[in-house]
């Protein structure tokens, strides 16, 4: 088969989309180092649990229907002590050792000099992201390099949230007034879904995000683009969109670096156009969805802090959407 560019693109898209469904937010299909270690532990304890449950139910059955010799043995005080105290004490100690050993590994400071730092702050009901030492501001979609440990500094600005990407590792709570941390290393390219895992009121159910893991070189290029100020609008429609953006006061809450819009109450929109979704992570970034969110955000994400903007005509909506999508 001849390798066509379209074919390759399709294969790449398929690869990215392959994360959909069962695999994308699953503890048992790990794609990161920490998740992998935990998944191994999980299978071992599942096996242990199944074995013990079988043992107990077999003992119950034997007690009811077993031979008189077997029942006589089960009725002994000694059997109670052996099965109910000694056996669990030994097996649980072994499991405990394994669990504590793995816990210490995952909590130990990274020996790697290659660690990349990202700060994530939980907000009701979105994710404030800042990349690297310079704190390049972004929101909701998090991109990380494959194969490098990423150190997440976690904060919360209002109530308690929890940062959780199951395919990559365990969750860590984000507590106002405190700073916590998580270390995750993606082992392959892909898109992994995360979700807030501490009830934070309102649309907590919709507070999810995607983590996009890119190969190192691609990642560095992306980060450089992300650090740059916003793309200047090129078409007339986009420019109209930008004036509407400023005139409607969007800049009071949203920042678009390189323009007058410098608000920090809401998500940074400087490179919104390069993200996969808008509003909630399951709403793909299209002009139609952008309009939907601006005009009807309370229907999409009830209770969120952005008011509905019903002040625009269809044309104006189109211009706004074009501008925002252009911010790649």
């Amino acid at each position: 088969m001849k390798r066509s560019p379209q074919g390759l693109a399709a294969a790449a898209a398929l690869l990215l989309l392959a994360g959909c469904g069962i695999d994308v937010q699953s503890v048992l299909t790990p794609r990161g180092t920490q998740a992998g270690q935990i998944a191994n532990l999980a299978w071992i304890v599942f096996a242990f649990g199944a074995a013990v449950l079988t043992l107990v139910m077999a003992a119950v059955w034997a007690a009811i229907r077993g031979s008189s010799r077997l029942r006589g043995a089960l009725a002994q005080d000694r059997t109670i002590v052996v099965l109910g105290l000694i056996f669990p004490a030994v097996t649980l100690t072994l499991l405990l050792g394994y669990g504590v050993w793995l816990m210490r590994i995952q909590l130990a400071p990274s020996a790697s000099t290659d660690t990349f730092h990202i700060e994530v702050t939980g907000e009701q009901w979105w994710w404030r992201v800042a990349y690297g030492g310079a704190g390049i501001a972004s929101a909701n979609e998090i991109r990380i390099p494959v194969g490098r440990p990423v150190h997440f500094t976690l904060k919360a600005s209002d109530v308690i949230h929890s940062f959780w990407v199951p395919s990559l590792g365990g969750k860590v709570d984000m507590i106002p007034g405190r700073t916590t941390a998580a270390r995750l290393t993606a082992e392959r390219e892909g898109i992994y879904r995360g979700q807030c895992a501490e009830y934070c009121g309102g649309p907590h159910a919709l507070m999810a995000f995607e983590v996009v893991a890119l190969p190192s070189a691609e990642y560095d290029a992306w980060l450089a683009r992300e650090a740059a100020p916003a793309r200047v609008p090129s078409s007339a429609q986009e420019q109209r969109g930008q004036s509407l953006f400023i005139a409607a006061g969007c800049g009071a809450c949203h920042a678009v670096r390189g323009t007058a819009a410098a608000g920090t109450i809401g998500p940074d929109l400087t490179h919104l156009g390069g993200r996969r979704s808008v509003g909630i992570d399951t709403m793909p970034l299209t002009a139609e969805n952008m309009t939907r969110f601006i005009a009807n955000s309370q229907h999409v994400k009830p209770g969120n802090q952005m008011p509905e903007f019903r002040i625009f005509s269809a044309d104006e909506h189109a211009a706004l959407a074009a501008y925002l999508l252009s911010l790649r």
Binding site: V27, A42, Y98, G99, G170, K171
Partner: peptide, 8 residues
């Protein structure tokens, strides 16, 4: 009760 599993 095993901490890493609980983290998931």
């Amino acid at each position: 009760a095993m901490v890493p599993f609980d983290w998931q």
